[in-house]
Design a binder for these strands. Structure first.
Length: 492
RNA sequence: GGGGCCGUAGUCGAGCCAGGUAAGAUGCCGGCUUGGGGUGCCGGUGAUCGCGGGUUCAAAUCCCGCCGGCCCCA
């Protein structure tokens, strides 16, 4: 309880006007000004990851990689070009992607006889190789993943990291298993991995089974994670697909089992994209810019000297001393000795989301204290100089937990149950994710999907992929028996 | 698929309709000042006006084509 002994200076209120009302512009601004991702590259739907953004992305994906490795997955890397004949093997998959792939049709000045698609996702090249690798039950399971670029020829609007033509940090995991049960267990495992991953990032979510008409092309079932943006639009941030044996049969991925029979494998795959980074920015941010969790912030603490005339030397010396102590304690610290004014520095580092700021001026030196300001709440705390390392460590944990809780509280306040069709429309308009009872018939929700931007996310499920029971026995649209608690939202 | 808008200095942006020496802000460089929430002042730097063609004595401005970006509707 080190914090409790210090006197609290001020609890700031968190400005979130622009964040909420002009989310699109706010978001583009933050990406560029915080040097995360620059979409001004002169090609539609393609942008540049800058140093700070790449550091954040690396930390985020590092967490995911670690979890995958611990669960028996291996990182691999496949070619970006897929020969046309491989791409065309599974018909439903082709139909789903054909209209949105880039083609490589020429080599130098020569028209290619065998054309290539730039991978929009890697089922087809991977499963072609699975056929070669898998012959015996001893070769199973296969569990691999890669983090690569994929390309999709988006014809409508693109938006940095939301919807790109070049999706530059696309994570995809793929597995092949000997039995249906084993595969289904893996789908559940993938769901749990994602749930844990998003929790660690403080990204709140719901899980739904996507309706028939919105499944991944070639999948038996698609489960999706959706979060919510400040403007009330849902954002799909991760998907898990049960592929059954459809690809196995198309690609001929067979093995001889212990019982001597030749069988097709069972498969699943799951993926996330740069939208994870989008979510972190959007969900934790405010009008001052980013606010990063201490666990993923490339810089955890910034020290800003307040050099009054005549005290410059004393102040800078104290700053350097504190810097060394924190650095040696294992924190990622920056001492900002640039000749900008303190005010400028405050804004600059808040924009970049540094979780804690230390100010050291003549007053602090005189009283042997330092001033710490939290990025997430703007709360100011004064701490005895001697206790600084422990105090920071404790405060850092507190910030981490409170930021996650604040994000979930906000998200939960945006989930609302509707009891009638009229209420569904009204709540959607107000930016809620609407939950209601549904029989599962597409016809019942046709009117609703006509509304601008509205999407039926799907039937709500828990982390074991069990349906969450609807509150009412009857479908609110047709009065027949309700099977699902359906989630509906304005969506990206 | 249908309709509309925009492209001017590193960045933002006025000028375009009514053709005639390309505003302003910010950034950057130098100096002083200031410093616990974007300090102020002085001086300086920076643009073949997206590309190509046409009309004209004269084009950022009018016309045509191309490239790039954005928005709205289905």
């Amino acid at each position: 309880m080190l914090i409790a002994s210090e006197k609290r200076i001020k609890v700031g209120t968190r400005p979130r006007e622009r964040w909420r009302k002009e989310f699109g512009e706010w978001y583009n601004d933050v990406l560029i000004k915080a040097e995360i991702y620059d979409h001004r590259y002169p090609a539609k739907g393609m942008g540049v990851w800058r140093g700070y953004g790449k550091k954040i992305a690396n930390r985020v994906y590092g967490i995911l990689k670690k979890m995958l490795n611990e669960n028996g997955y291996e990182e691999v890397q496949f070619p970006a070009l897929i020969p046309e004949k491989i791409f065309r093997i599974e018909s439903e998959h082709v139909r789903g992607f054909e209209a949105e792939v880039f083609w490589v049709t020429r080599g130098g000045l020569t028209e290619l006889e065998e054309k290539y698609v730039l991978r929009p996702t890697s089922e087809t090249p991977m499963y072609y190789m699975f056929r070669i690798w898998i012959n015996s039950y001893r070769d199973l399971p296969v569990k691999i993943y890669q983090i690569v670029n994929v390309w999709r020829y988006e014809t409508k609007w693109t938006r940095p990291l939301f919807r790109e033509r070049e999706i530059s940090v696309f994570f995809e995991a793929h597995g092949a298993f000997a039995s249906k049960e084993e595969n289904e267990n893996e789908v559940k495992l993938a769901t749990k991995i994602y749930a844990t991953f998003f929790r660690k990032l403080g990204i709140p979510f719901i899980i739904t089974e996507r309706p028939e008409w919105d499944k991944f092309p070639g999948a038996e079932k698609t489960y999706a994670f959706d979060t919510l943006m400040p403007n009330g639009r849902a954002l799909q941030i991760g998907t898990v697909h049960n592929l059954g044996q459809r690809f196995a049969k198309a690609f001929g991925i067979k093995f001889q089992d212990k019982d001597l029979k030749i069988k097709y494998v069972w498969q699943n795959c799951f993926g996330v994209s740069g939208r994870v980074v989008t979510s972190i920015i959007a969900i934790h941010g405010d009008d001052h810019g980013l606010a990063l969790l201490p666990s993923i912030a490339p810089i955890q603490i910034v020290i800003v000297p307040i050099p009054y005339k005549g005290f410059e030397q004393a102040v800078i010396q104290k700053c350097r001393e504190v810097y060394e102590r924190l650095k040696n304690a294992g924190f990622s610290v920056v001492l900002d000795e640039s000749d900008e004014t303190p005010g400028e520095k405050f804004y600059k580092w808040e924009l970049r989301g540094v979780p804690l700021r230390i100010e050291i001026g003549p007053t602090d030196i005189k009283e042997k204290e330092i001033t710490i300001t939290r990025r997430d709440t703007f709360e100011r705390i004064r701490v005895n100089e001697e206790k600084i390392v422990d105090a920071i460590r404790e405060l850092m944990n507190k910030v981490e937990e409170e930021m996650k809780k604040a994000a979930w509280d906000w998200f939960n306040s945006k989930l609302e149950i509707a009891n009638s069709k009229e209420e569904v429309g009204k709540l959607l308009e107000e930016g809620y994710i609407v939950l209601t009872s549904w029989c599962g018939d597409e016809k019942c929700v046709e009117d609703i999907t006509e509304l601008p931007g509205v999407k039926i996310l799907g039937a709500l499920v828990d982390e074991n992929l069990e349906y969450i029971k609807p509150k009412h026995g009857k479908c609110i649209f047709c009065e027949r028996k309700a099977k699902y608690l359906v989630a509906i939202a304005k969506s990206y």
